[in-house]
């Protein structure tokens, strides 16, 4: 951005100050190979290192969510009361002095005579293997993340686009409806739902349907307000394009990337909402678990056994980080402004 500029004194311009450009270059029209839109997007995406790393990490996490619960030798719901609250202990690594099962300078495993016992991520207050539980929880949380993003995009974005594009009375009515829905604090809605709905996944989806999409709709609306006065929209309209065609074909591709990024932010929110739901009796049924519930359980022992919350927060943060890098990549790939040949 700070390119050097040669200062030229306008009073003393000589022929030497002018140079011919493109000398020796054969000037002719370039033709690009015809590539389909999606392929073009993919080509751009591939070049983005961060995005590819993100995708790989997500795939790894998904693979772990599938096979992780099977490889530690413990069942996720297996309570062994003698093995409560054990810190992480990993074979081989323990020889290096890390993950050797000590807490506050004492090796808890040896103290309890569990010389041949290994909990890679430690165990929880009920003596359940956290490694297995984290990957079981990841399954649930990934599903909830997916639901949250789909709701965000399908409901929130469309709502915001339509409301913002039409403006006037439509906007007024739609915004008031969203305001009423959002004006009732989520906490109250969720708690009240908790009293009437049964525990389980359908209730979680239902709750997210009610509360999850409003933030996104507001952002989408703001973006439309910014774009809809642009000339190219006017041009499209003059050419006889229908309203919905303008919304979804002309406006949406321009803001889609931005919205994808924002929808990633609803992921942790949804995951924590789910954790809160289990608190009010709506979330996942024990002994099943989720990353959110693991975090809120681990929180109760944070100052005593920090390992209980650490592993689940790290998995969540990794998940979030890679989702974000992926979203960034997708955004750049979709964004027509960033295509420079």
């Amino acid at each position: 951005m700070d390119e050097e500029r040669t200062v030229i004194d306008p009073a003393n311009v000589s022929d030497k100050d002018f140079v011919f450009v493109q000398q020796g270059v054969k000037i002719m029209d370039e033709t690009y190979a015809s590539v389909s839109y999606m392929k073009d997007v993919w080509n751009h995406f591939r070049k983005n290192r961060g995005a590819v790393i993100g995708l790989v990490v997500i795939c790894l996490i998904i693979i772990m969510a599938i096979i992780g619960p099977m490889i530690s030798g413990y069942r996720y719901d297996e309570i062994i009361l003698t093995n409560q609250s054990l810190p992480p202990r990993i074979p081989l690594l323990e020889k290096l002095g890390i993950f050797n099962g000590s807490e506050r300078g004492r090796n808890v495993y040896f103290e309890r005579g569990l010389n041949d016992v290994y909990y890679w991520f430690g165990s929880d207050t009920n003596g359940r293997d956290l490694f297995t539980r984290i990957w079981m929880g990841t399954r649930v949380s990934l599903f909830i993340a997916l639901v949250a993003v789909v709701i965000d995009i399908v409901v929130g974005m469309s709502y915001g686009l339509i409301s913002g594009y039409f403006g006037g009375k439509v906007d007024m009515v739609m915004q008031r409806f969203a305001e009423i829905l959002n004006g009732v604090p989520t906490l109250v809605v969720v708690t009240l739902l908790g009293l009437v709905l049964p525990q389980g996944i359908p209730s979680i989806i239902f709750t997210l349907m009610i509360t999850g999409w409003i933030g996104m709709s507001r952002i989408a609306r703001a973006e439309v307000l910014k774009l809809k006065e642009n000339e190219y929209i006017l041009a499209s309209r003059t050419l006889g394009a229908k309203d919905f065609a303008i919304i979804f074909k002309d406006i949406m591709p321009n803001i889609f990337g931005q919205l994808i990024i924002m929808s990633m932010f609803s992921v942790p929110n949804a995951i924590f909402t789910e954790a809160f739901l289990s608190f009010v009796g709506l979330g996942i049924q024990p002994p099943q678990t989720s990353l959110g519930s693991l975090i809120s359980d681990g929180y109760k022992s944070l100052t005593i056994h920090p390992h209980m919350i650490m592993s689940s927060i790290i998995v969540l943060a990794l998940l979030m980080l890679s989702f974000n890098m992926l979203a960034d990549g997708i955004r750049d790939a979709f964004d027509p402004n960033q295509k420079k040949g």
């Binding site: 961060g50 929180y299 943060a317 998940l319 979030m320």
Partner: peptide, 25 residues
């Protein structure tokens, strides 16, 4: 840019009450 991204993503992934307790500690 990457550093700030990581920091901000950790910021949204860690619930505020965990920060709160860590700060208290």
């Amino acid at each position: 840019d990457s550093l700030f991204s990581v920091v901000s993503i950790v910021g949204v992934s860690v619930p505020s009450y965990v920060f709160a307790l860590l700060l208290a500690l």
